[in-house]
C-alpha cells in the first residue's frame, strides 16, 4: 500500500510552503505503512487551516465544527472501535475553543490518535494570536493577549495522564512518519504535537526557528519514565521524539490518578463494533 492510495483527488487549499502539506504526506505514509484500508479509516477534524486535512485523505472523514473534533471522534470510536480513527487539527481548535475536551478524551483513553499541527497562530481567520503564540511575537506584531503567557500543550497532556505523547517537526518527513506510525499503533489515546510553520502569518524563517529550538531526544532517554517526560518538556526547547509511552496495562500517571492493578485500558474492553443494522 502506498501513501497516494489514501489521497483523494482534491488539491489542498493551503498556502505554498505550509507545514500541513508535510503532515498530510507523513500521515498517509504512516497509515499506508500500517496497511489501513480507506474504508477502515476515519479522519475527524474541527475547523481551521489544518482541519481541512480530512478532505484530502481517502477515508470516512468528517470536517466537523470548531473545537469539537475530539467528542465526535470519541463517540465514533466508542461505537465503532474497529475503525482506525485519527483526529487532526490546529492549536486554536485544540488548545483554545476545544481545550476543555482534551483532558477528558485522555482520561477516557479511547484509542484515538490526536495530531495537532501547531503553527502558533490563527491562520484561517488571518493572523490572530493563538494559545501557543509567543509573548514576544504578540508584542512585536501588536496582537491581542500580549500579556498572556502561551500554553505548554505537551506538559498539559502529560499531566492529564496521556499514555502516548510525541513531538515532531513538519519539515522532517521520516521522523514524522515514524511518530505517526507509533502513535496510531499505540492501543490507547495518543497525542502527537507537530511543530508546523505558517508561511503567511508567521515571520519569514519561523519554521527554521522552531527547528533551531528543537533537539531529538537521545537514544538512552527512557520513554516510560513519566518524570523524565515532564522534565523534557519544561524548558523553552522542543524535545522531538516519543516523549512518553505508558507501558501496556500500567495505570495513568496523572494528578489524581489511582494506581489500580485491576485497571484495564478501555481498548482492551472496546474491541468490537456496535451493530449498524
Amino acid at each position: 500500500m502506498k501513501a497516494k492510495d489514501l489521497r483523494t483527488e482534491l488539491q489542498p487549499v493551503w498556502c505554498t510552503g505550509c507545514g500541513d502539506f508535510g503532515v498530510l504526506k507523513g500521515l498517509t505514509q504512516a497509515l499506508a505503512d500500517l496497511e489501513v484500508a480507506p474504508e477502515k479509516l476515519a479522519v475527524i477534524s474541527g475547523i481551521g487551516c489544518s482541519s481541512r486535512l480530512p478532505g484530502y485523505v481517502k477515508a470516512y472523514s468528517f470536517n466537523t465544527i470548531h473545537g469539537r473534533a475530539l467528542p465526535i471522534a470519541t463517540g465514533l470510536k466508542t461505537a465503532r472501535p474497529e475503525l482506525t480513527t485519527v483526529v487532526v487539527g490546529g492549536d486554536g481548535d485544540g488548545f483554545s475553543i476545544g481545550l476543555g475536551h482534551l483532558p477528558h478524551a485522555i482520561r477516557r483513553d479511547v484509542n484515538l490518535t490526536y495530531v495537532v499541527m501547531d503553527n502558533g497562530i490563527y491562520g484561517l481567520t488571518k493572523g490572530q494570536a493563538s494559545p501557543t503564540t509567543e509573548l514576544e511575537s504578540k508584542r512585536s506584531r501588536g496582537l491581542g493577549g500580549s500579556d498572556e503567557q502561551p500554553l505548554n500543550p505537551v506538559l498539559l497532556v502529560l499531566s492529564s495522564g496521556c499514555g502516548f505523547v510525541a513531538r515532531t517537526h513538519a519539515g522532517n518527513m521520516p521522523h514524522m512518519r515514524e511518530m505517526f506510525r507509533q502513535a496510531i499503533e499505540y492501543p490507547g489515546f495518543s497525542f502527537v504535537h507537530v511543530l508546523a510553520g505558517c508561511v503567511t502569518y508567521q515571520p519569514r524563517g519561523y519554521s527554521d526557528q522552531l527547528l533551531q529550538r528543537s533537539y531529538e531526544l537521545p537514544q538512552e532517554y527512557d520513554t516510560t519514565d513519566a518524570g523524565a517526560a515532564i522534565n523534557a518538556v519544561r524548558d523553552g526547547r522542543f524535545a522531538l521524539g516519543v516523549i512518553y509511552r505508558r507501558p501496556l496495562g500500567a495505570a495513568a500517571v496523572a494528578a489524581g490518578a489511582t494506581e489500580d492493578e485491576d485497571w484495564t485500558p478501555p481498548d482492551a474492553v472496546l474491541k468490537q463494533d456496535l451493530p449498524t443494522e
Partner: peptide, 13 residues
C-alpha cells in the same frame, strides 16, 4: 461533548 459524541457514533451508523 454529549451531542458531539452522539453525532460521532451516528456518523458511524
Amino acid at each position: 461533548s454529549a451531542l458531539g459524541m452522539v453525532v460521532g457514533a451516528s456518523f458511524g451508523g
